[in-house]
């Protein structure tokens, strides 16, 4: 009994923490089937490329992505020339030069994504006092992750008659308190996808969340592939250890028989 209880205890100690976080009164995020879920998960590069387009054309007007460099787009199967062109399309402040002056130059692949505002204060001033968060880690920084971000993007609704909204706020079923400063950013056809995919709100939300998932965990594919190998290695070696242990311990039984 003791042994069984200890094993159960071990399992409980590692499973329990997931339930330890307090639930909110807001709606639970929709559960989506993401290509990156699970131990075999991988990135859907087409979707992420489209998601990049959504980010660039819609989100980037308010939200920075300051931990990602243009060179990182190589992960998404962008060619080197494309990346150079994307980077060059941005103006980067650099300097000081030999005359001691700061200057603007075209972006290079090694530059981080240029932020839409010079600083947080400028961002607040332009957004009715609210600060649009940097999106580099947004998927990891929110309870519910990708499901939650998707739910927010598709969760705008008409304000119920009995709800009094604060000034400049928008009604969103999935946001804590249901009042969010960000106006509904997506509407059908808001972008024209280069690959011809129909740009419905759900499609754009799906694509941009895939992009943000990649931005938050660019190592994910590599990590999971390596994990499979490590698990196989550990399973084989643990099996060998068990066999070796039995072999070694069988000597004791033989000794006992001889006596």
């Amino acid at each position: 009994m003791a042994r069984a209880c200890f094993i159960l205890l071990l399992l409980l100690t590692v499973i329990a923490p997931g339930n330890s976080l307090a639930a909110d009164k807001t709606k639970e995020p929709v559960e989506m089937h993401w290509s990156f879920n699970g131990i075999w998960g991988s990135f859907d590069k087409q979707s992420i490329q489209r998601g990049y387009q959504v980010y660039k054309e819609i989100c980037a007007s308010c939200h920075s992505l300051k931990r990602i460099a243009y060179r990182n787009l190589a992960d998404l199967a962008f060619a080197e020339e494309e990346i150079k062109a994307i980077a060059a399309g941005n103006s980067v402040k650099d300097g000081p030069n030999e005359d001691g002056e700061m200057f603007e130059r075209h972006g290079r692949p090694s530059d981080k994504f240029v932020s839409p505002f010079a600083n947080d204060k400028a961002a607040r001033a332009a957004n009715n006092g609210a600060l649009p968060p940097d999106l580099s880690l947004i998927v990891k920084a929110r309870e519910g992750g990708a499901d939650y971000i998707y739910s927010i993007l598709t969760g705008y609704d008409i304000v119920p008659t009995d709800v009094k909204m604060a000034e400049g706020m928008n009604y969103n079923l999935y946001f804590p308190g249901r009042q969010i400063a960000m106006a509904n950013p997506l509407s059908d056809g808001a972008v024209t996808y280069i690959d011809g995919t129909e740009a419905s709100v759900q499609q754009m939300a799906h694509d941009v969340v895939s992009f943000l998932q990649w931005a938050a965990e660019p190592e994910m594919e590599k990590r999971k592939r390596m994990g499979i190998k490590v698990m196989l290695f550990l399973l084989i070696f643990t099996g060998l250890f068990i066999a070796a242990k039995r072999r070694v311990w069988s000597r004791l039984d033989e000794e006992d028989k001889q006596q």
Binding site: R223, M231, L234, F241, I242
Partner: peptide, 13 residues
Amino acid sequence: GFFFILMFYFVFF
């Protein structure tokens, strides 16, 4: 062996 299997499950997945 068992400890590493549990630990690296979390690390990688």
